[in-house]
């Protein structure tokens, strides 16, 4: 166990960091907001943490915290800016925002280290810290998916007009997911910088969008658990794929494509369907217990499930 732990430390760290990044996109999606701002926040967090650590030797927690705070504020401002957009358009706008930050980093001169980036950000952040943070985040998110608040968010996603008429502060919820997404992304970025002790423009590029998105889609977009499944799979997949050698990338592409086309609700969706079938077979009465499970709630209604990614529906469904 101990050797395994030591030799796989980087993968373990990456799993939780990718998880946080994936969550920074999953959280807005759950409220029907198709935003990649989390990837931009990752860059903000990564650079803030590295700059503070290298220049001012602040403790790791302060460096990451500052990044989180900054990204949360930027997230709020961004939410105000893109308030009019939805769907793919919002996606594109936020991707542009994330990539723009990459260019900014390349042109940041001494502050960001230009094309080389920054290195030597030595801190005391450890794997255990990352896991602790990720666990706390998961617990909080799991809680937010249940109860009145969870239903409020679902309502914002499913039918914003209805939600407004029910007294839900739709605009408020949307702004909040931008802030949360910013904080999560920055937290992932900051921890990654400090654990790797380095950050460069190429580590905050477009590939993060792809990684995070595939994790959520393949894991399942409706719950934090889906993001967790996706993060585990995509962090450990490359080391499994070594057996296919030179065609690793090809197999990766085929897997993503196949999952996106034929497993639309992600592995979580498959598991839930399978679980429900099992239960139905076990006892004939509809299982009350199943509904209590955090993630199952959302998947109960297939129609709801289908609409989940879309955001405010309105015109999409009759």
């Amino acid at each position: 166990m101990n050797t395994w732990w030591l030799s796989n430390q980087i993968l373990i760290q990456s799993t939780f960091i990718s998880l946080l990044l994936a969550l920074s996109i999953q959280v807005p999606l759950r409220a029907g907001v198709f935003s990649f701002a989390g990837v931009g926040s990752y860059a903000i967090g990564a650079y803030t943490a590295a700059i503070l650590t290298i220049r001012y030797q602040v403790p790791g927690i302060v460096a990451i915290g500052a990044g989180v705070l900054l990204a949360a504020v930027v997230g709020y401002l961004l939410a105000l800016l893109v308030a009019r957009l939805a769907g793919l358009y919002l996606g594109m706008a936020t991707i542009s925002f994330a990539l723009l930050l990459g260019v900014l980093a390349t042109n940041g001169g001494d502050l960001t280290g230009g094309a080389t980036g920054l290195y030597g950000a030595i801190s005391t952040v450890t794997t255990e810290h990352v896991i602790a943070v990720a666990v706390v985040v998961m617990v909080l998110l799991a809680a937010s998916e249940r109860g009145a608040f969870g239903r409020k968010v679902d309502a914002v996603r499913e039918d914003p007009q209805l939600a407004v008429s029910l007294g839900v502060n739709v605009i408020g919820v949307r702004r909040m997911v931008f802030v949360v997404s910013g904080a999560l992304g920055a937290c992932a970025g900051g921890m990654n910088s400090l654990l790797r002790t380095t950050v460069s423009p190429e580590t905050v590029g477009f590939h993060l969008v792809v990684t995070a998105l595939t994790m959520i889609i393949i894991g399942g977009a409706l719950s934090w658990a889906g993001a967790a499944i996706g993060a585990v799979i995509f962090t450990w997949l490359p080391s499994l794929l070594h057996t296919v050698g030179e065609w690793q990338l090809l197999v990766y592409g085929l897997l993503v494509a196949f999952a996106a086309v034929y497993v639309p609700n992600g592995l979580l969706g498959l598991l839930q369907t399978g679980w429900r079938r099992l239960q139905r077979r076990g006892r004939r009465i509809p299982a009350e217990g199943a509904a209590a499970g955090t993630s199952v709630t959302a998947a109960q209604d297939p129609e709801q499930e289908l609409a989940a990614l879309g955001g405010p529906t309105g015109e999409a469904r009759p």
């Binding site: 792809v210 889609i217 085929l254 494509a257 086309v261 639309p264 990614l309 879309g310």
Partner: peptide, 15 residues
Amino acid sequence: DHRKAELQILVGGIG
């Protein structure tokens, strides 16, 4: 749902 399809097409295309 047309929005879900949009997103899936995006990801499928990337893959």
